Amino acid sequence: MGKIIASVSCTLDGIFTGPQDDENNMVSWAMPGIIDSTNDNLVMFQKADAILMGWVNYEGLASYWPYQEGEFAEAMNKTPKYVATRNRELTEVKWGDFGDTISLLAGDLNERIAALKSDIEGSIIVPGSAGLVQSLLNAGFVDEISMIIHPVVLGSGKRYLESIAARNDLKLIGTQHYETSGSMRLRYEVVK
């Protein structure tokens, strides 16, 4: 049975994208922590058996990683990827020259995720994709949350876990302090 791991970078107040009209400002607050945690993130993606993402995240990642080189690009490009979307008009996904590594999850999301978890033995990483993670958490599919907290409070923007339907208890299973940036990775198991 596969294990779904939600992975995100966010501020101390839980924001993963910036305020209105500055949504892509992560460079100003997250980049020091992202650089600091690169090796740990690389290992996480190298060990992943699959990557699951929402449509918006897919569009950003698919426009970048297939055209990069190096260990991180290899992990992103060669690992099987799945794109979940509610838009029934979308019928195909592409990943540069690595088209055989990506699939569209169409139909009932709960059925497709249950089948994916059944088919995959190891970890299924969900990078970012807040809307998808919220749906997966609400449906009981998320097994772990790996969150890098950056030492900044933005006060406004989109919160990563904004639309959670009910209480989810978590058990701390790991921490990693990144001294240069002051960021902290917190790993939680979702108690079922």
Rank of each mutant, 00 (worst) to 15 (best):
L186T: 08
R112N: 15
F45C: 02
D108L: 06
Y178L: 00
D13R: 10
F16T: 00
K192M: 04
K47E: 14
K3I: 05
S37A: 14
W65T: 00
A84K: 14
A50T: 05
G99K: 13
K94G: 09
R159F: 04
S37C: 08
V191C: 10
G174T: 10
K94N: 15
E74C: 02
I120T: 06
E92R: 00
E92C: 02
G155D: 09
M76Y: 07
A6C: 06
E71H: 03
V133I: 09
W65D: 01
F141P: 03
K158F: 05
I35W: 14
T180F: 05
S7P: 02
K3D: 00
E69D: 15
G14A: 03
N57D: 08
D36T: 02
V27P: 09
A30K: 12
A48P: 07
G14M: 04
E179W: 05
L116T: 12
G122Y: 13
V27W: 11
M147H: 09
F98Y: 15
L172W: 10
I148Y: 13
Q20H: 03
L52W: 05
I120V: 15
N77K: 01
T38Y: 12
R112K: 15
N110A: 07
G14I: 00
D22V: 03
Q176C: 13
T180I: 00
I35N: 10
W65P: 01
I51Q: 03
I4G: 07
E71G: 03
K78R: 12
A75R: 01
M184S: 14
W55G: 02
A130G: 10
E74N: 09
E71T: 05
R167G: 04
F72W: 09
L104A: 08
Y64T: 13
Q20D: 08
S9K: 15
Q46P: 06
L90F: 07
T17V: 14
A106I: 07
G70W: 04
T11I: 00
T38G: 14
R88F: 07
E121R: 09
G54W: 02
F141Q: 00
A115G: 03
V93N: 15
G140H: 12
E179N: 07
L12S: 07
S63E: 10
F16W: 06
D13M: 08
N39L: 09
G155C: 10
K78E: 14
E144K: 11
V8L: 10
T101E: 11
E189Y: 02
L172F: 06
G70S: 07
R86C: 07
A62K: 03
C10T: 04
A73V: 02
F45E: 00
V152C: 11
Q176M: 13
I164F: 12
P80E: 03
Y160N: 12
F141V: 01
G96F: 06
I15K: 15
C10A: 13
Y160Q: 14
V56L: 04
N138P: 13
L109Q: 12
Y178I: 01
E23A: 10
G128A: 13
Y58E: 10
S103E: 14
D40L: 02
M184N: 13
L170M: 12
M26I: 01
L109M: 15
N77M: 02
L109W: 08
I51S: 04
N25K: 04
A75E: 08
E89V: 11
D169R: 12
A6L: 05
M184L: 11
